[in-house]
């Protein structure tokens, strides 16, 4: 997805719309998917199903928004699966001990701490390529996952078993003001903050420039180290928020529950159009990437495609998205 095209002199509005859609095929994909699914499967447009889509979107979007910053800066974070698992079990087990508010705060701090630990490892090792950050964060993913397993001894923790007040979790799951659910409000606030950081602050520009060309950014005096701390901190914190939303929705915390969200988050970012090589992207695009993915999952579920085939398709879509994006970049640079 490239920048919106301005209507040129002499072009009708219709031509301008066509040009816009040609440059931003994701909207076409979303529309086609929604129309095809609603025609073939009337269940698609029921309130229950739409509600289901919004809820699934609610968990994925937080992790994907954080991941956007990491990928825009030309790095990658494979540890978010481990972070989501760890934050989920820490939060749920602490409710009975310290109460729900502090438990959530501690959970979010754990997520932030994990992110900062990643950034410390990457900074001290001087890793500059995406491949190096991939290996280090993958190892950390195993570490976080193992800590979660050791902490719980592999036992699933049920939110509903806790004797204390869990009203915040209930509110996140089902509460709302008018038509807006609490998780939708959280999403809008998070998107607003991250979009402002990305577009209006010095650090936001620094993150994008770091992704554009690390050597040039360093020579131009861009604070690369601070960018790295920022992106992994944001990624850890956003995954932690995603974990809290996930826990509220499924009312349990499992030490391996974070696993699938890692590929999903990367997919949402890349399908949205943020370049994997860094330097180009936006949290706004990720929103549409996540929407497309959730719609696709929903439509495959409605058509009763087996979960193994869906798993396979995820890999295929990842390959196709990156291949097409690279092909587009190559044709632009020629």
């Amino acid at each position: 997805m490239s920048a919106a095209t301005k209507p040129a002199e002499g072009r009708t509005t219709l031509q301008a719309i066509f040009a816009f859609l040609k440059n931003n095929p994701i909207f076409v994909a979303i529309a086609v998917l929604a129309i095809v699914t609603s025609v073939r499967e009337p269940k698609f447009l029921t309130t229950e199903n739409l509600d289901n889509i919004v809820r699934q979107f609610g968990v994925l979007i937080f992790a994907a928004l954080g991941m956007t910053f990491v990928i825009m800066a030309g790095f990658i974070d494979l540890s978010i699966g481990g972070i989501i698992s760890l934050v989920a079990v820490v939060t749920v087990t602490l409710i009975d001990k310290v109460g729900q508010g502090p438990a959530i705060l501690i959970g979010l701090s754990v997520g932030l701490g994990c992110g900062l630990l990643n950034s410390a490892l990457i900074l001290t090792s001087g890793a500059l390529t995406q491949a190096e950050s991939l290996f280090i964060t993958y190892g950390m993913s195993l570490v976080f996952g193992a800590v979660a397993l050791m902490y719980t001894q592999g036992v699933t923790q049920f939110l509903t078993y806790s004797s204390s007040d869990i009203s915040i979790f209930n509110a996140i799951n089902s509460g709302g003001f008018g038509p807006l659910s609490v998780s939708a409000i959280m999403f809008i606030v998070a998107l607003g903050i991250l979009y402002t950081i990305e577009r209006r602050t010095y650090m936001g520009r620094a993150v994008v420039l770091t992704g554009g060309n690390k050597v040039a950014a360093r020579l131009a005096g861009i604070p690369i180290s601070r960018s790295i701390v920022l992106i992994y901190g944001v990624s850890g914190l956003m995954s932690a928020i995603g974990a809290v939303v996930l826990v509220s929705r499924v009312t349990l915390a499992d030490p391996t529950m974070g696993g699938p969200w890692m590929t999903q988050a990367i997919l949402a970012v890349v399908v949205g159009g943020t370049a994997l090589i860094g330097g180009r992207g936006s949290v706004l695009w990720t929103v549409f990437g996540a929407l497309l993915l959730i719609l696709l999952n929903n439509c495959l579920n409605l058509w009763e495609v087996s979960s193994y085939v869906q798993f396979m398709l995820r890999g295929v879509i990842l390959i196709l998205a990156i291949w097409l994006d690279t092909a587009k970049q190559n044709s632009v640079s020629k």
């Binding site: 590929t263 990367i266 890349v270 085939v309 869906q310 798993f311 995820r314 990842l318 690279t326 190559n330």
Partner: peptide, 26 residues
């Protein structure tokens, strides 16, 4: 994809690993 089309090999092969595992499960 990763050599002739010059896409990032580690994400392409990561995706390929997921796809192959999915085929195996299917």
């Amino acid at each position: 994809i990763s050599v002739y089309q010059k896409a990032e090999p580690f994400i392409i092969t990561l995706g390929m690993g997921i796809a192959l595992t999915g085929i195996g499960q299917h």
